[in-house]
């Protein structure tokens, strides 16, 4: 990364009054309502919320894969109109191209941007080495472990020096051990580069360990419930999870999430009661 100052000062992202209606099987549902928050430049912004509340939907809106039903997303003042290399997404499951080697995957962006092949390749090799993948450049994604895939994917995003790096539950599905290792890798990367980041997770420990700010979402229709500043010092270490400050932040976040999860749960039971009624009614007919 040559131009670190720009990655740490660019990428101020504002979501204002976002509403999003999605319909499934012809039934519209309000997923997001009046959802507003900022992604602060040079910070590790974490987005946390109950499962199914619309975190991936928000990532899609910022990435430009979908447009909000109402409201605006701007990045450094410019409205988002579609996908582009100024915002890079690391997806929930790996989206490395299986038909390209790790080297070709990571070099893809720079080459599309017109960087000469030789230069793109040396840049890629350096970055892969930085995320611990030296010697694996010529492997295909299926030939490396899940953790290595995640790191290659972060590299594929970072090499484009995006204004904002969006990670949608990037370590979900990894076993406990690799998840911990990945968090360490990612912390180190962030503390070196300071790139503007939105990191989506549903794990409170992960959120607090990584974050400068934690944006807590409510349950559908989803908006921001609270923003918690995490002022634990950097560099962060795993040992910090035993600090009383960590425990206090965790308790606060959990409390907020618990209230929202309960809402979802109550809704769930209402639905299941309805279903039971339906089954009972059909039983009578039969």
């Amino acid at each position: 990364m040559t131009d670190t100052t720009s990655t740490t000062t660019r990428g101020y992202t504002r979501l204002s009054g976002i509403g999003k209606v999605l319909s499934r099987a012809g039934r519209p549902e309000v997923i997001l309502r009046d959802c507003s928050f900022d992604i602060k430049p040079g910070k590790l912004n974490v987005l946390i919320g109950p499962s199914g509340c619309g975190k991936s939907t928000l990532v899609n809106l910022i990435a430009g894969y979908a447009a909000p039903s109402i409201g605006t997303v701007t990045i450094d003042g410019a409205p988002v109109t579609g996908p582009g290399p100024d915002r890079m997404v690391v997806f929930q499951e790996t989206a490395l191209f299986p038909w390209m080697t790790l080297l070709d995957n990571v070099a893809y962006g720079p080459i599309q941007a017109g960087v000469a092949h030789g230069e793109a390749e040396s840049h890629t090799r350096a970055l892969l080495a930085k995320v611990g993948l030296a010697g694996f450049e010529q492997r295909y994604p299926d030939q490396v472990s899940g953790g290595m895939q995640r790191r290659a994917e972060v590299a594929r995003a970072l090499i484009n020096l995006p204004r904002v790096l969006l990670l949608d539950e990037p370590f979900r599905g990894l076993d406990h051990m690799s998840r911990g290792l990945m968090q360490e890798y990612f912390l180190q990367l962030f503390e070196d580069e300071g790139m503007t980041t939105l990191f989506v997770t549903s794990e409170v420990d992960e959120a607090i360990l990584l974050a400068d700010r934690v944006i807590v979402l409510s349950y559908k229709p989803t908006a921001v419930k609270a923003v918690i500043d995490v002022d634990l010092p950097r560099p962060r270490t795993f040992q910090m999870q035993t600090l009383p400050e960590f425990a206090a932040l965790k308790a606060r976040t959990l409390q907020l999430l618990y209230e929202e999860a309960m809402k979802g749960f109550v809704k769930g039971t209402a639905a299941s009661a309805e279903l039971e009624q339906l089954v009972a009614a059909q039983g009578v007919v039969r």
């Binding site: 894969y65 996908p83 582009g84 997806f91 499951e93 989206a95 191209f97």
Partner: peptide
């Protein structure tokens, strides 16, 4: 996701 990734990466 492959198509989305390709679009983000600036594919023609």
């Amino acid at each position: 996701r492959y198509i989305q990734a390709a679009r983000s990466l600036g594919s023609s």
